[in-house]
Amino acid sequence: MRIALFVTCVNDTVFPDTGRAVVRLLERLGHEVVFPEAQTCCGQMHYNTGYRREAQRLAVSFVKTFSDADAVLVPSGSCAAMIRDNYPRLGETGSPLDREVAELAPRVYDLAELLVDALGVVDVGAYFPHTVTYHPTCHGLRVLGLGERPYTLLRAVRGLELRELDGATECCGFGGTFAMKNAEVSSAMGWDKARSVATTGAEVLCAVDNSCLMHIGGVLNRQRSGVRVMHLAEILASTEEEPARI
């Protein structure tokens, strides 16, 4: 399959390893990855903070960039949710944006959905000999409804021991601009989440959203916990020949 990668602005700028892992994983599975260079940002930050017009402009640009794609991979749960759940609210009913979004949105996938639903693969041939716990980020959990998919993918990784995370479905407290506007509450939530993560004894905290991982990881680092945060793509890209460093 020919898969268009919308890497997201945060991954592009701050977490390029996730994008590289996605490319490596999909090419290993025999698929072609393309990266349309006109891409920028889904507009989630603008939309969630109340800047609807700016978000609309970015939505128009996204739709234009990806309208021809067979499948669009978005390796960020909240950005995929922005496109699928919020883009339909951005265009007036019957407007060009509204029509184009309705046409494109069903072909937009998060990584776990792409692998399990579109490509029909659970065992991606990965090797990752470490203890891992998984945080189901809010948009992946409640908007995309990823359910068991990420766990199924992780359980199929050779060498990986999955540890259950207490209070897994509770928000980590990132919430985009919430982390700045209500920094104390955001931190209190982050510290509680980090405590649950540390209690599992896992070496690695995994999620499908690097924004949440940046927040929880920022706390884990500050606490000198020694727990490493990794995007699902980086674990699935890891093989015996080229193991991911932790």
Binding site: G50, C138, R142, F174, G175, G176, T177, F178, N182, M189
Partner: peptide
Amino acid sequence: PYASSLCGA
């Protein structure tokens, strides 16, 4: 309106 992380619970 900002007193939420928009977690959706």
